[in-house]
């Protein structure tokens, strides 16, 4: 059983991870983009952590909606609307629940992936964060197990998905303008998605 406070703890762990990896994500983005992805993710989750500082006792859906709004307003960029839509979809998927069952882990991850796909219009193989979130959602949905275990399996799939983006040619976003020159470099959005899921898995243990 996971409460809103547990979800909040998972998001706070993501904030720490993004801060720790901020410059590495910027360098990764510098190869095929504009070198600001780490700043967006670290700044966005710092704002989420601040917004969640006085939300003890909130429901999981309330926590996720606060995360959506604070991330969007701090970031803008592409990751702002993508993650805001993902968090809002996740909130809607568990609306009205005071606590989450094991099976809700897959529900949350799948809703995140759907929201991101809906807002960004990306498909599999476009070399975007969806190439981490899509496999994560599939792996989580196929798994019947505990909450933390489901997140860990999703994180494994997201990491493999992020690695696989190195072989892809970007079809969406700034890197798409590179054409074949984007091949050989891991997508920073997919890399941060894998970091996020791993942090959430570790924090929900």
């Amino acid at each position: 059983m996971k409460t809103g406070d547990d979800i909040r703890a998972m998001l706070l762990a993501v904030a720490d991870t993004m801060q720790a990896n901020r410059d590495a994500l910027c360098r990764l983005d510098g190869v095929i983009g504009d070198a600001d992805h780490g700043i967006a993710m670290a700044g966005g989750f710092r704002a989420v952590a601040e917004a969640l500082s006085e939300t003890a006792g909130a429901t999981p859906a309330e926590v996720l909606n606060i995360a959506a709004k604070s991330f969007l307003n701090a970031v803008g960029a592409s990751s702002g609307p993508l993650y805001a839509t993902g968090f809002m979809r996740a909130a809607a998927a568990v609306k009205g629940k005071d606590s989450l069952a094991d099976s809700d882990a897959a529900t949350l991850i799948a809703a995140m992936a759907e929201g991101i796909a809906h807002r960004g219009k990306a498909g599999p193989g476009d070399k975007t964060m969806l190439d981490a979130w899509g496999p994560a959602a599939e792996a989580a949905s196929a798994h019947q197990g505990g909450f933390a275990e489901t997140f860990a399996i999703a994180a494994d799939a997201a990491e493999a998905g992020a690695e696989a983006t190195a072989l892809m040619q970007a079809r969406l976003g700034r890197a798409a303008r590179l054409g074949a020159r984007s091949v050989g470099h891991k997508d920073p959005g997919a890399a941060s998605a894998a970091l996020m899921l791993r942090a959430m898995a570790d924090a929900s243990n």
Binding site: G30, I32, G33, A35, R174, L178, R181
Partner: peptide, 27 residues
């Protein structure tokens, strides 16, 4: 370089130029 990182956002050799580069350093 971005104010947050103060690290050059792409690498270009000392005697190189790049035609067509974007205003955010896109190749």
């Amino acid at each position: 370089s971005l104010p947050h990182t103060r690290v050059p956002n792409f690498e270009l050799g000392p005697d190189e130029m790049e035609i067509g580069m974007g205003i955010h350093g896109e190749p």
